[in-house]
Simulated scan of single mutants.
Amino acid sequence: MNQCTAVALLPPPEHVLALSAPGGHRPEAGHVLCELGENHDTAHSAMLWDEGGRPGSAVWVRWDTERAQLLPLPWCTALDPRNADDACGLFAGHPSAHSWEVTDPTDQAITRDLARLHPHLFR
């Protein structure tokens, strides 16, 4: 399944702006790309950061056409049946496929091109 291609430009949260030093570099808006499989039926989602070590430590942005929310969400506990050491890289209860079933078509195209140009690196 291909990855969703939804992109959003998100401004930094107000509390982050309030913490920035006066006269210093202020955080800027940034783009996020949905990490879910295409044709999902809920809000788009991207993981922003993971503080690690405790449930709900990963902070995700979930957005639709109306608004965006930052949410601490626990990780999906499903394990890749091809390699039990690899867990799903999405949040618990995510819609669509698990992360190992979602492919980024842009990443695949770049990899194919690099393999064609530099076959010795892709044996």
Rank of each mutant, 00 (worst) to 15 (best):
L71V: 15
G24V: 11
P74L: 10
S45L: 01
W63I: 06
H25R: 15
G53A: 02
G93V: 14
R67G: 01
S96I: 01
Q108F: 04
I110D: 00
D50W: 02
E51W: 07
L33I: 11
P105W: 06
P55Y: 11
D50A: 05
P27G: 06
W60Q: 05
I110K: 05
H44M: 00
E35K: 04
P55N: 11
P81Q: 07
D104S: 03
E51V: 11
A29S: 15
A87F: 03
C88K: 06
R26S: 12
D64C: 08
T42D: 12
L73F: 08
W60A: 02
H40P: 05
T103S: 12
L48C: 11
N83K: 12
W75M: 05
T42M: 07
E101P: 00
N39S: 14
S45W: 01
H98N: 12
P55L: 12
L90G: 07
E101F: 03
H94W: 05
G93F: 13
S45M: 06
W63E: 01
V102D: 00
P55R: 13
P72A: 13
G93W: 14
D50P: 01
A92I: 07
I110A: 07
G30Y: 14
V61M: 08
G89F: 06
D64I: 06
C88V: 09
H31Q: 13
W49A: 08
W60S: 04
G89D: 09
D86L: 05
W60K: 06
C88Y: 03
G37T: 01
G37D: 03
N39K: 15
L73T: 10
P95K: 12
C34Y: 01
Q69I: 09
A29R: 10
A97V: 04
E66K: 15
R67F: 09
L71E: 13
T103I: 12
A92P: 02
W100P: 05
D104L: 01
C34W: 02
E38Y: 08
P74R: 13
L79N: 08
Q108W: 06
L70N: 12
T106N: 09
D86G: 01
T106H: 11
W49S: 07
A29D: 01
G30L: 04
I110E: 02
A29H: 03
